[in-house]
Design a binder for these strands. Structure first.
Length: 570
RNA sequence: CGGGGUGUAGCGCAGCCUGGUAGCGCGCCUGGUUUGGGACCAGGAUGUCGGAGGUUCAAAUCCUCUCACCCCGACCA
């Protein structure tokens, strides 16, 4: 490919809308252009990257035995009503009517349609197992799209669905996909980690997320450097402190803390560690008021809390509700001398002695509070907090560390959730009817492009792993339009590279070298060859990897081989 | 949905407070000089100043409403 015949639309300055590095660079490099909030055009250069990611995913999915198909983006409401997701999905599901006033949706995912396919086509156990996937445009009307393509409303996803006669076979395919995803992300050249994940509203028994490691990631990951434990913080279990509760040492005391409404302020005023302060969080679930207790240095894990049966679908209490039940303003509430509602203590709080909490009297806190002596034991002790760095690993093999990640893949064991709702059954060898055991497996194709940049960029631009770079190698001739020798050499090198299977780009624009260097670096081409009269005289060309500080001279005859043997800049 | 912010040429911005014929840099077009790290000179094109309404002799500028976009939070297979 020649730049003169291609569309390179780089910008010196990034549009002001972009904050995140990958978003700015994608705009500057001309990979994408925004059309509306969360909706982007993939420019030719960006599309090349998307296609390369797709190709690797497709190749590995096929190798793993999955079969590709393509389902409609526009789907009739009936199926969604049948699965009840027409009601459950909420405003993220974009709905509209056709000219006959019939309801339709733009697919955010395709469980309904694939299950419909399965119940029509997979009527016998003889056809199982079956894994069908598609690479298709998805639409989710995100409340707040952000970071460009990273959390867009329209995006491309690989979604696969597997059908099995029994759970054991689903587990086999789940492991197969775990291994396949590991291969895919390895081939893509990304640093990633598979982490145990919450199954969320989709239900099911097993779930792993594949997270690309990046400080800007939206997800927090807890992992143990001494073992293979890794989980999304949403899920990571916080163990009860070892050693249990110490005996009280002081009598309870009521102390004035005027104006100090946060644990941090109270701890500072009293000169005690934050970890012995207890914060009370008031919730309302259904009609019931509930008080949660956490250590001052811990934060509430709402997903864990929501798993407590009587906290299903909770919300935070309003200030008025707090005053009604606690007879005290927020900021000074606590669990001592309260009645009429349940008190749920985090495991770490239940293990405290001589702790500090609100006195249910504006401007006062209690010190040296002790369970059993100053207040009854909590109604429930549960794990309701986020783990923190240094917590013991749930597998007992060391201490947890935290890092951040970008979720690029997610695998689920759906079990029979959809097959039962949509009455998708097969007949076994005895003629008995059973709902399919199902798995589902997603990869965010377009998000991977942004994640790859988040993971590799410098002040000059993107640094793509070679397997997904828009071009693998570029040739920058100095004096292409002046020197017939330079032109001949550059043309020949480009042809040789392409013949050798290298996706090469020849920058034949009549630009100054600085412009060409800057553009090629901005779009993240991993390998660069510079052809100049100076070098030609010595029979050399100059090679520089995208991450290299300085170029090196190589013989012209070695150029193609050099690029083929250098794996990548990654 | 709550909070904050921004809309002026393709991109980045100034002008607005204090109303008086719309500007700068980059990019783009023409010609010339350049050619190893985003060149220089000369000339040129490009604007419903986000939209609607109002005040005024006069509105990018003041007022009201509205729309779009961005950031934080909440939310989210």
């Amino acid at each position: 490919m020649r730049t003169s015949a291609y569309l390179i639309s780089t910008l010196k300055e990034a549009p002001s809308e972009a904050e995140l590095a990958s978003h700015r660079l994608m705009l500057r490099a001309g990979l994408i252009r925004r059309l509306a909030s969360g909706i982007y055009t993939w420019m030719p250069l960006g599309l090349r990257i998307v296609r390369k990611v797709e190709a690797i995913v497709r190749e590995e999915m096929n190798r793993a035995g999955a079969i590709e198909l393509s389902m409609p983006v526009v789907q009739p409401a009936e199926l969604w009503q049948e699965s009840n997701r027409w009601q459950e999905y909420g405003p993220e599901l974009l709905r509209f009517k056709d000219r006959h006033e019939r309801d339709f949706v733009l697919q955010p995912t395709s469980e309904e349609v694939i299950t419909e396919i399965a119940r029509g086509e997979l009527k016998s156990y003889r056809k199982l197992p079956m894994h069908l996937y598609q690479i298709q445009t998805k639409f989710r009307d995100e409340r707040r799209p952000r970071f460009g393509i990273m959390r867009g409303r329209e995006f491309v996803m690989k979604d696969g669905y597997s059908f099995h006669a029994d759970f054991a076979d689903l587990e086999r395919e789940y492991r197969n996909m775990y291994d396949t995803y590991t291969r895919i992300f390895t081939r893509l050249g990304l640093a990633f980690r598979a982490v145990a994940a919450d199954t969320g509203s989709i239900g099911g028994t097993g779930s792993h997320e594949f997270q690309v490691l990046a400080d800007s990631g939206e997800d927090a990951i807890a992992f143990c450097p001494d073992s293979d434990y890794a989980a999304n913080v949403e899920l990571a279990e916080a163990l009860a402190p070892a050693g249990g509760r110490a005996a009280p040492t002081q009598p309870m005391q009521k102390v004035p803390t005027p104006g100090k409404t946060t644990c941090e302020q109270v701890a500072e005023l009293l000169g005690v560690p934050l970890a012995i302060n207890v914060k009370a969080i008031a919730l309302v679930a259904g009609e019931k008021f509930v008080l949660l207790l956490l250590r001052g240095d811990h934060s509430l894990n709402e997903i864990k809390a929501a798993k407590i049966p009587f906290l299903n679908q909770f919300r935070f209490a309003t200030a008025a509700e707090i005053e009604q039940h606690m007879h005290c303003v927020p900021g000074y509430i606590g669990p001592v001398d309260v009645s009429g509602f349940k008190v749920v203590a985090d495991r770490s709080v239940a293990a405290l002695s001589d702790f500090v909490c609100g006195a249910n009297d504006a401007g006062f806190h209690l010190t040296s509070v002790n369970w059993g002596r100053d207040l009854p034991e909590p109604d429930l002790v549960a794990d309701i907090r986020n783990v923190t760095a240094g917590d013991p690993s749930p597998d007992g093999k060391g201490r947890l560390e935290l890092c951040r990640g970008i979720e690029v893949g997610h695998i689920f064991q759906l079990r029979t959730k959809y097959s039962e709702k949509l009455k998708a059954n097969f007949l076994d060898e005895k003629g008995a009817s059973h709902p399919f055991e199902m798995g589902c497996y997603g990869i965010g194709i377009t998000r991977i492009v942004a994640a790859a940049i988040e993971q590799g960029y410098d002040d000059r631009g993107a640094v793509f792993p070679a397997p997904i770079a828009p071009f693998e190698a570029c040739i920058v001739p100095i004096g292409y339009h002046k020197s017939p020798a330079v032109k001949a050499c550059a043309d020949r090198l480009c042809a040789d590279l392409i013949a050798a299977g290298v996706d090469a780009l020849l920058d034949d624009r009549d630009e100054r070298p600085g412009v060409m260097f800057a553009d090629m670096e901005l779009i993240g081409v991993p390998h660069r060859l510079v052809v100049s009269e100076k070098g030609l005289a010595a029979g050399t060309v100059e090679y520089k990897g995208r991450r290299d500080d300085t170029p090196s001279l190589i013989a012209q005859s070695e150029a193609v081989a050099a690029i083929r043997t250098r794996p990548a800049s990654a």
